[in-house]
Design a protein around this nucleic acid. Sequence first.
DNA 1: TCAATCGGAGACTAACAGTATTCGAATACC
DNA 2: GGTATTCGAATACTGTTAGTCTCCGATTGA
Lengths: 197, 197
Amino acid sequence: MPRLTRAESQARTRAHLVATAKEMFLAEGYSVTSLEKVADAAGYSKGAVYSNFRNKDELCLAVLDDIHAEKAMKIAEAITGADTIDERLSAFQKWAEENIGNVGWTALEVEFAISARRDEVVREELANRDRMIRELIAALITAQAEELGIRLPMPADAAATALLSLGIGLGLQRAIDPTIEVTVLTDLIRLLAGPSK
Amino acid sequence: MPRLTRAESQARTRAHLVATAKEMFLAEGYSVTSLEKVADAAGYSKGAVYSNFRNKDELCLAVLDDIHAEKAMKIAEAITGADTIDERLSAFQKWAEENIGNVGWTALEVEFAISARRDEVVREELANRDRMIRELIAALITAQAEELGIRLPMPADAAATALLSLGIGLGLQRAIDPTIEVTVLTDLIRLLAGPSK
DNA sequence: TCAATCGGAGACTAACAGTATTCGAATACC
DNA sequence: GGTATTCGAATACTGTTAGTCTCCGATTGA
């Protein structure tokens, strides 16, 4: 175990806190998970949290960044391995079942968004992230439609908004009633892809 | 001013509290609105709240009941006054802009759902309400489709789930970024109605 | 008229986010 | 290499909140 410099040591602390917070936020929820519990579970005190993050919201933003990076990797993997429409659809459906279907994620995103929406800085930050995701989805849709020779029944940005909204709404309802099926997502995609059997 | 019986007096207190809480929850949010502020604003003390409601969640459920009754009236009005598809669509769009578009409502529903989901009793209650709304929407869709001679591209219950999810997701994103358009909702309905242009 | 009841008041507790202060070890300077 | 400084982390503290408990006084029923 090599001796750590102050910067390295702090980075390690920060990473520990983010990892622990991620686990607890996803499992228990944002508001019910106190900073003290997170600090305890990670083996530190509240002081460690507040010298690494301005407040609880900043910690959660770091956690969400971590989650997003992970999700982006997974979805990229899922798509690159498929060529036909049907293969891509089933790859997407599998991803959706594991992610939208897994209640914790959407719940955390939504709980944080709702609780932080009164903070103008965080609200704007979240709005930007949301816009970027919608643009990314729209680009993806356009590319897929072009490649597969599909004529979309609505503008790509509207379709992207619809798809993202649907994902959020579904994930949220599943947090209340996990028996709701995720398949509606692929139903909508099929509908967008048109009557191509 | 006639002398009130004890029961009447309590009912009045309860109604005052619900009305005040409704206003404040919608304007400020659920978690940031303390019971003491609600009680104060209504001209009572916390004791009044706790002798009329088991806890904060119960008060919020009463508020949501109140809101739902109001919304149901409005949507019924909107629909009954229209005969053609286009009239109904624009009536619905108007309703959507005033309701989904008005950020407070969705935000309150979602904030409460997320915060109360750990309470098994409330969670089940919310799940039932959600199921009933989906069934109601599904019935509405079926009736409309039949009346207008439309063949739905997916089962009515899936369409209902999609529509509700879309509404929730849209309202939620609008709580973060109010520039997002509500029109996607009617886009989806047109898509469900098929190429009947 | 008087006793029982119960809606509501208000003091209290525990848990929380966030702040202020302090401690000690890694750093930088001499 | 010793000493002063810096700064990450610990800890004691504050203000606010949901929820509890006790008490008061007005309505009720006899």
